[in-house]
């Protein structure tokens, strides 16, 4: 059996990769993918912690987080689309009408 710590470590690593992705990438869609990656790392953490305690609450929470991720994806891509229509770019550096 794999110790739960390994799962938690993997979750932390994926979360870190997602965070770095948000910070270094300028393509808004890839930035958003990195955010999804972070949420997924949290999901894995919830499942692992729930399994360690033998309680199913962690899984129910993940169920809700998935819905939130789906809603964020739909709304977020809609906003990116609207912004693209105005500016014809998805490069974060070019969104400079408002001082960043």
């Amino acid at each position: 059996m794999t110790p739960i710590n390994y799962y938690l470590g993997l979750g932390a690593l994926l979360f870190a990769i997602g965070t770095v992705g948000v910070l270094i990438r300028r393509n808004l869609i890839v930035v958003f993918m990195s955010i999804e990656l972070m949420l997924n790392a949290v999901n894995l953490t919830f499942i692992a912690l729930g399994r360690a305690m033998g309680s199913a609450d962690g899984q129910v929470i993940v169920f809700f987080v998935m819905i939130v991720a789906g809603v964020e994806a739909a709304v977020g891509l809609g906003i990116i689309l609207a912004a693209f229509r105005n500016r014809l770019t998805v490069n974060a550096d070019e969104f400079n009408l408002l001082r960043w």
Partner: peptide
């Protein structure tokens, strides 16, 4: 300006959501 505002608000808001949720996960653990 409006769609740019929504975009920045959304991206940073979603980013912060990740941190909050990870915090909740650890507290749960």
């Amino acid at each position: 300006k409006s769609s740019e505002a929504g975009l920045k608000y959304f991206l940073l808001g979603a980013f912060s959501t990740g941190f909050l949720l990870y915090g909740i996960a650890l507290l749960y653990g």
